[in-house]
Design a protein around this nucleic acid. Structure first.
Lengths: 129, 129
DNA sequence: CTGAATCCTAAGGGATACTG
DNA sequence: CAGTATCCCTTAGGATTCAG
């Protein structure tokens, strides 16, 4: 079926495979969206929260901490009052941004096909019933 | 920070954005791993379950159904007894495989850097305490 | 062999209120 | 403004059992 070469190098048998580890990090509901928004130029807590519709303050802080702990985002606390904190992508974070580009392009390009597949599947289910 | 172009086209404000929808689908713990294993040439329920370490039968079936419903995997039931069912990637699924290739390459290439960042973060935390 | 059904717990994650 | 802490409910998801 003409699969890409990279499939050979990943071993999902191994629960400690880097794929599992990092997929758990960036494959959650918020991480990539937050990195995206930071990459779009929104660097402050409130800005990010308003840009990422529906996220709670709790999840925002929690996810930012995880991204920071993994070296994808850098936190700059200006130690002023009132508080001023800025988040920036690290070079590592930017490199991830580039790596997931094709995936986002696929999403945009393939969304209609997915919707069609869903409709077809639903129709098949209805017919079977 | 030299972000890729695609960041401009995604709007996380919108909870109905295709990114949210499809990230929920492929951004879970199992979907990509299962597609990967199928792409590696393991097509049957039992094969896949053994290759994807730690997955339960329930999650395997559930995830395969979701992938099928979204047109990424095709299910072929040979209607024999004992049952023989094969899962294959659809062309759409293969195209997704190519789209996530760079991400997997990034994971492999950047894992050491992430581990270093984690250690540095932990050290900083310890010092602060 | 494939996989549906049930049960049950552990984690995800929202709402709210409070602090520096 | 940024962030913590608490409460509480919902979901994810594993273990197990049953069926075709």
């Amino acid at each position: 079926m003409d699969m890409p070469d990279w499939v050979a190098s990943v071993d999902p048998c191994d629960a400690d495979c880097p794929s599992r580890d990092l997929l758990d990090l960036i494959g959650d509901r918020w991480s990539l969206l937050i990195m995206l928004v930071i990459g779009q130029g929104f660097h402050r807590n409130g800005e990010i929260r308003r840009r990422v519709g529906g996220i709670s303050q709790k999840m925002l802080t929690q996810t930012l901490r995880a991204l920071e702990a993994n070296g994808l985002v850098a936190r700059h606390d200006f130690a002023t009052v009132p508080p001023h904190v800025e988040y920036r992508l690290t070079p590592l974070g930017v490199s991830l941004g580039h790596a997931v580009g094709p995936m986002f392009q696929w999403i945009e390009a393939s969304y209609p096909a997915v919707l069609r597949a869903r409709a077809a599947y639903a129709a098949r289910q209805a017919q079977a019933a």
